Amino acid sequence: MAFLAHEPEAPAPQKAPFISRRTLVIGVPALVGLAAAGAVTGYVLAGDGPKDEGAAGTPSPSPGAFPTDTMLVRLDEGERSAIYSTTPGSGKRTQLVAGGYDVLPQWSHKRDLITYIRRITPTHWQIFTMGKDGSGAELIVDKVNRGTRVCWSPDDTKLAYVARVSGRNQLFTVPSTGGTPTQVTRTNDDKDDPAWAPNVQGLVCMWGVRDGKPQLMLFRLDDPDGSRQWLTSGGLASVDPDFSPDGKLIAYSHSKVSGQADIWVVTPDGKSSPVTSGPDLDMDPTWSPDGRWIAFTRGPVAKPRIYAVRPDGTGLRELTAGTALEGHASWS
């Protein structure tokens, strides 16, 4: 899969029913303007519940109850994209916000607040926070990089995100209640997808460009332009990092070729191993609160659906019910 770090933004197509985090990473043009925000009633999509499969796709018994912790998802509805909460695999969803084009929800560590980004135009994105029931939506940052992830500090007092400065992606932090952002990085390379370590003060994982491909790196916020600890390398892109709740593993999306990627895990000292495999596009991993499962989005990109798997690659199951188009899950 080609990584088009410096490709100019192309005109938006006339119609597109969804957004994929991966399309933003590889430079696919952003969507056109969406319909004005309006009330979209919550609804239930029928389904038989999670389908449990073995690592090779064969039925496999489930050793214990599957987590029922509330998951956040982006649900594509025609030309709109709204954020819902759901019990994984139930098909029952509660709409939290319907701004017309809201994506990438992320739980705070206390699970009492949610942050997400909203597209105003193809080049104008905003960061919002809201309560776990969708109440009290607050604009935190008016303009950020298109499709940037937003992550919470371990104590939930700050948010980290990426914005463009003089044509380059730079990391910023901002108080989670709003205020003046602080520019953290000033390096002359592109970077994105910040993930804040839950167990080490001031440690962030994100991708940076190494030998022409995005690769995962660790750095400290108090020395952002100093020596970086690279976790991945080679000719394949590694993006979408997400720390396990105990901080001992980082799940990420590891590209094979255009339109194909697997979920991998890597330790903070750089030991990596695959979790999923096959011809699909697997991306946007998120850990269950107990750290025993990884949920992720599986393509094709026009039909995103949420799956879950154990970190050792067993127990693969589909969580999206019915014909819904779900992506950008946040579980912990």
Rank of each mutant, 00 (worst) to 15 (best):
A5T: 02
A5Q: 06
E7S: 03
P8T: 01
P11E: 04
Q14W: 09
P17A: 02
S20R: 14
R22K: 04
G27C: 00
V28L: 00
V28H: 01
P29G: 01
A30D: 00
L31H: 00
V32Q: 04
V32D: 02
A35V: 07
A37Y: 13
G38E: 09
G38T: 05
G42Q: 15
G42T: 11
V44K: 12
D48I: 14
G54Q: 11
A56N: 15
G57Q: 12
P63Q: 13
P63V: 09
M71C: 01
L72G: 07
V73A: 02
L75M: 14
E77Q: 13
R80W: 11
Y84V: 13
Y84I: 07
S85V: 06
T86W: 05
T86D: 04
T94A: 14
Q95M: 11
V97A: 03
V97W: 05
V97H: 08
A98T: 10
A98Y: 14
D102N: 15
V103G: 02
H109Q: 14
T123D: 02
H124F: 04
I127K: 03
I127V: 15
F128A: 02
F128S: 02
F128T: 00
T129D: 06
M130S: 04
G131Q: 08
D133H: 08
W152G: 06
W152A: 08
S153H: 10
P154F: 06
K158D: 11
Q170A: 05
Q170N: 04
T177N: 10
P181V: 06
T182F: 05
Q183Y: 04
R186G: 15
D189T: 15
D192M: 00
D193V: 07
A197K: 08
P198D: 06
G202I: 03
R210M: 03
L216T: 09
L216D: 12
F219L: 11
R220G: 13
D222M: 07
D223T: 07
S227M: 15
W230L: 14
L231H: 11
G235Y: 08
P241W: 13
P245M: 02
L249T: 12
I263C: 10
V266T: 15
D269E: 07
G270M: 13
K271W: 12
S273Q: 15
T276F: 05
G278M: 11
P279A: 04
D284Q: 09
P289D: 03
G291P: 15
I294G: 03
F296A: 06
T297W: 09
I306H: 03
Y307K: 05
Y307I: 13
A308R: 05
E318M: 10
L319D: 10
T320W: 05
T323Q: 12
H328T: 04
S332E: 07
